[in-house]
C-alpha cells in the first residue's frame, strides 16, 4: 500500500479512500461480474427448466423435471412448490385449498425463510432482468428522478393486495401481477403481456429509479418481511471499510447499507437486501462478502 498524499481523503479507519476501478483484463471483469452472471444463469435456468419440461418433455428418471410455473409447480412429479403470497391471497379470498398447494407454499416459505426472502427477487424473478436493464440504461443516459416516493409504499401495496383479496373474492395481485405475466408469457405464450412488461421497463427507465422492485412490488415486500430471518447475508467487515460509498452507488436498495448498524452487527441485516451481490465485487477494500449468518462473528463480542 502506498503512503497517502496530503490531499488524499482518509476513511474513519485512517486508511486512504480508494475508488473502485474496473479491471482491464477479461478475467478480472468476469470476477467483478460473477454475481450478475450467476444471477442471470439462475433466472434463465429456472425458466428453461419450466420451458423444457413443457415443450421438450424434459425428464429425469422418467419423471418430468419441473412442471408448472413459479406460481405453483411440481419438482420431479413429487415435490410440490407454490408461491406463498399467491396462496395466501387465494386463502383470503375465501377459497379452501387442496393440501398440495399448501405444502408447496410451506416448502417455498421455508426455503426463502432460511436463505433470505428476497433471494427470489434478485436470483429468480423474471422481472429482475427487465428492471436491471432499465436501471443500467437509466444510468447510461443520466436520467434523474422526476419525483420521490417512499420505499415503504410497497408494504401498503402488500396490505392492499391482501385486503382487496378478501373484499373482492379473488387473489388481487395475481390478476394484475406482471411477474406471473412474465413467467407465464415465457412458458405458455405472451399475448399482450409484453405491454405490461414494457410499461414496467419504461416506468423504471423514465419515471422512478428502481421504481417497481424498490417501491411498488408487493411480492418483493412480502419476501422482504420474510427476509429478516434470512441466514445468507452480506457480511460487513467494519475495520477495513473506508466509507468510500462504492457499494451504495450500485445497490438497488441503498437504504440497507447503513454502516453504523452494519458495523454493530457485522452484517447487512434488513430484509430488503435482496442478496444480489452487486456491492461485493465493487468494494475496493473487500469489506463485504456473502456468508451464512451463524458464521459471521459478532463485532461486539470481539470487543471492537
Amino acid at each position: 500500500m502506498s503512503i497517502p498524499d496530503a490531499d488524499v481523503r482518509l476513511g474513519p479507519n485512517g486508511r486512504p479512500v480508494r475508488p473502485f476501478v474496473m479491471p482491464a483484463t477479461l478475467s478480472g471483469r468476469l470476477r467483478v461480474w460473477r454475481h450478475i452472471l450467476a444471477r442471470r444463469t439462475t433466472q434463465v435456468g429456472m425458466l428453461l427448466l419450466f420451458y423444457g419440461t413443457f415443450h421438450w418433455d424434459w425428464a429425469l428418471f422418467g419423471l418430468p423435471v419441473l412442471s408448472g410455473n413459479p406460481s405453483a409447480s411440481r419438482l420431479l412429479d413429487t415435490v410440490p412448490l407454490a408461491d406463498p403470497f399467491a396462496t395466501l391471497q387465494i386463502l383470503l379470498s375465501g377459497q379452501s385449498l387442496e393440501s398440495t398447494v399448501l405444502i408447496g407454499a410451506g416448502i417455498i416459505l421455508l426455503f426463502y425463510g432460511l436463505l433470505g426472502g428476497r433471494v427470489w427477487c434478485a436470483w429468480f424473478c423474471p422481472i429482475n432482468p427487465i428492471t436491471d436493464a432499465a436501471g443500467w440504461l437509466r444510468a447510461r443516459l443520466g436520467i434523474r428522478d422526476s419525483f420521490h416516493i417512499s420505499r415503504q409504499l410497497r408494504y401498503y401495496v402488500l396490505a392492499l393486495a391482501l385486503i382487496l383479496s378478501a373484499v373482492s373474492g379473488v387473489a388481487a395481485f395475481e390478476w394484475v401481477s406482471p411477474i406471473s405475466m412474465a413467467h407465464r408469457g415465457v412458458i405458455y405464450g405472451l399475448g399482450l403481456g409484453w405491454m405490461a412488461l414494457f410499461g414496467i421497463f419504461l416506468f423504471d427507465l423514465v419515471v422512478l429509479r428502481h421504481g417497481w422492485c424498490g417501491h411498488l412490488c408487493p411480492l418483493g415486500a412480502f419476501y422482504g418481511l420474510l427476509g429478516k430471518l434470512g441466514q445468507l447475508r452480506v457480511a460487513f467487515d467494519k475495520p477495513t471499510c473506508t466509507h468510500c460509498g462504492e457499494c451504495a452507488r450500485v445497490c438497488p436498495e441503498p437504504q440497507v447499507l447503513n454502516f453504523k448498524k452494519a458495523g454493530e452487527v457485522g452484517l447487512i441485516a434488513p430484509g430488503e437486501c435482496s442478496n444480489c451481490g452487486r456491492c461485493i465485487p465493487v468494494c475496493p477494500e473487500d469489506s463485504l462478502s456473502f456468508q451464512l449468518r451463524p458464521m459471521i462473528p459478532n463485532p461486539e463480542e470481539k470487543g471492537l
Binding site: P64, G68, N69, A86
Partner: peptide, 17 residues
C-alpha cells in the same frame, strides 16, 4: 366459473399434463 376463477393459481400444470 366464479369459484374456479378465484381458486386457480394459474400455474399451467394442467396444460403440461
Amino acid at each position: 366459473e366464479a369459484d374456479f376463477n378465484a381458486r386457480c393459481i394459474k400455474c399451467g400444470q394442467c396444460v403440461v399434463a
